[in-house]
Amino acid sequence: MPLDTSTEEIAAEARAIAERLTPLEGPLLPILHAVQERFGHVPDAALRAIADVLNVTRAEVHGVASFYHDFRSEPAGRVTVRVCRSEACKSVGADRLLADVEAALGVTAGETARDGSVTLEPVYCLGLCACGPAAQVGERLLGRATAERIAAEVA
């Protein structure tokens, strides 16, 4: 999100997104996805605008947004790295991979680097269970991932 996007602009854009998607049956998740795609996270100002359009309380929208792992209340780093922690990947060294990636990137799982360069998150299954350990750097999926490969993709 550009730093100069004002609260009013966020609210106006979020309102437009919400109004466009309201005709759907069960519009809230599509709205939250669209807002996050636009701003990189779901800003507080957007929650108010969405609640207003859907005629529900802000608490209800917040409750939904905070339930799901995908929706962020704060912007992520410039690159998001996800490392799978599930059983199939654990069987081929996912725990070691995550520790190595933490060391290589200098950031703990679940956190964003201070300089905003990278966010590292655990993920529970990318569906690459026959070629683990699996990871994702930005949009790019990696099978049989190593910390070196991941660090190289981030750079």
Binding site: S86, E87, A88, C89, Y124, C125, G127, L128, C129, A130
Partner: peptide, 11 residues
């Protein structure tokens, strides 16, 4: 919503 680790048939 194929979230089970070890499954990828749906995908």
């Amino acid at each position: 919503d194929e979230g089970d680790s070890g499954t990828f048939a749906d995908r």
